[in-house]
Design a protein around this nucleic acid. Structure first.
Lengths: 243, 243
DNA sequence: GGCGGAATTTGATCAGGATCATAGCTAGGC
DNA sequence: GCCTAGCTATGATCCTGATCAAATTCCGCC
């Protein structure tokens, strides 16, 4: 069912060769020289997951770290009463497993089909010690994530539903920019429920808020999972929650 | 009595000598050998602030990094409409300025009287490059903060006011534990407004929630700014939001 | 010790978003 | 191409926490 061997060939597929990996330029491996990449490849295993498959659970000993090669991953925390907070979505080039000294502080699941580069934590750690640049890169990454986390706290604690959803769309849009894809068309790879659990809302409120943005002409929704930004400036204004 | 630091000499004061610094064991400097400390001291300036004083503003170029030697610091982000989200409180031993590649991603202010060890960013950076252990320590710290940030997202997005405040009190309590202070008595160095802006609530709701916890006998409030935890287990249960 | 101002608490009301309920869509399977 | 199940949208109602409004307590200061 879910073996490491991919079934067909596609650009989205995990390339079993770091040297030609298209994801590299934005992943942590960007800092590695070719000969260093060899060391990296030596500790790498590839893993493909179907939508909904779990990668690891919160509290589990952190035996592996990952690079997302393709697809969308959600990381989340649960409350005993079943309520869920998605603390982030990861895309191609993102590093998964930071913030985990011993046990994973959060669970991770595939949202779409996902390809991962999997590293054994111990092996990865010694690789980090060998290549200083990787450690710097990780620190850089951790800092970026911290900045994003703070932005998200502002969103969760103080923004209206309208501003929350607008901010979310703009974030997806700038992720498109990172990959030189059009910034005004967004493919939503996650469900309304995922979005709700990310923004601290309910599905109903997310849905109504989409309808509102559509009604105001700020976005269009040609399909359920495709958003077209019609008025970028307006969306940015709403996201900043001017009164 | 009077637990605030007096103007003259006190244990709470920033010691202008890293070697005998009592804060060191929990600060990033813990990993430094005595001779390395000298290098650290060479780039350190000490700075004392009165309650309410600004340390830096969001967006400002990140020229300095800090260690909190004593007191409480709040870091926060603002929305154009004036709403504020406090993204963290820092205490003695905490590092301030992480997550800031070029410009500070958040503002920082003294809550109480505060003593800081101030480092020039550039000098600190080269020190980090000289002492590998410091870089590792910073990465460790960043990871810890990321874990805390995710916990906070869960709190902001999915917890009830009662669970929010309980979680907050428990966090302060474990900060006491870190310093081998009693875990069942908590000094609130910040106002209700600060707490509200940290938990994504209003002052009124914070106040009512304190009253509720008091009424249920879970805590006592002998003074405005002193909380005594009466039923630890109960508080932990409420913080996890069992239905 | 009394005064004044700020912080906190408490009370009354309101509204935004959650919840409950139902209907409409859409994609995947046959 | 149709059926079904799950996702999404919309409608109705409720309720929690925000807002508005005092009252009260606390603390620094003279």
């Amino acid at each position: 069912m879910h073996s490491t061997a991919p079934k067909g060939h596609s650009l989205d597929e995990a390339p079993e060769d770091c040297i030609h990996c298209e994801i590299r330029r934005l992943a942590i491996c960007a800092v590695l020289k070719e000969e260093e990449l060899a060391a990296m490849m030596a500790i790498t295993r590839y893993r493909s997951l179907a939508p909904g498959e779990m990668i690891f659970e919160e509290g589990e000993p952190a035996r592996s770290l990952y690079n997302v090669a393709s697809g969308t991953v959600r990381i989340y925390k649960l409350l005993p009463n079943g309520r869920r907070q998605i603390t982030g979505f990861l895309f191609a080039g993102d590093f998964l497993g930071l913030a985990s000294p011993k046990a994973y502080a959060y669970g991770a699941e595939a949202v779409t089909e996902v390809n991962l580069c999997q590293f054994d934590s111990a092996a990865f750690k010694s690789l980090v010690d060998r290549f200083e640049t990787v450690k710097s890169r990780l620190l850089e990454r951790a800092n970026d994530e911290l900045t994003v986390a703070q932005e998200q706290m502002l969103l969760l604690g103080r923004k209206t539903p309208l501003a929350k959803l607008s901010s979310f769309l703009l974030r997806l849009s700038s992720n498109n920019a990172r990959w030189e894809r059009p910034v005004d068309t967004i493919e939503l790879s996650m469900t309304r429920e995922d979005i709700a659990d990310y923004l601290g809302l309910t599905i109903e409120t997310v849905s109504r808020t989409f309808t509102k943005l559509k009604g105001d002409g700020v976005i269009a929704l040609p399909e359920r999972s495709r958003v077209v930004i019609r008025e970028f400036d307006k969306l940015e204004e709403i996201a900043e929650d001017f009164d």
